[in-house]
Amino acid sequence: MTPSREISVTVNGERVTVRVEPRKSLVDFLREDIGLTGSHVGCEQGVCGACTVRLNGAIVRGCLTLAVQADGAEVWTIEGVSDSGEIAALQQAFLARNALQCGFCTPAMLLTAAALLKENPAPTRPEIREYLSGNFCRCTGYQAIVDAVESAASDMTGAGS
């Protein structure tokens, strides 16, 4: 084992200082050290997308980022953006459309969809599919998710006009 290091990370707006082994991934840090278990571990090689969190404003793979790399950074997880209400419209659309079944991919899917809508407030269905193509969902077959994102986008842009 190698000596652990102290890191300070602002997680969901709260500054936390914890000692972690350098090898610990950001998602393991969030789950095990902070108790934020809404970010999930699916493949640990960056393919399934279940661990997606927001690091300094951009979505990243929590399994392909080390906790020590997040030292001094700002991290938002599904719990934080739920409590802040930031993605409420997307969440509501997912619930209304049953765009989640087991719910294991859902937190990451929502964070990814939120990143899409920030970049592109009125995406086409193929654009939605493409943006979400790094997030594996084994349950839904994706159509309900695409519907929900499309509907949330339409609600959000409609509300703004």
Binding site: A58, I59, V60, R61, L64, T112, S133, G134, N135
Partner: peptide, 9 residues
Amino acid sequence: IAHPAVRNR
């Protein structure tokens, strides 16, 4: 290259 979350890093 891969997907948005990977391209971001």
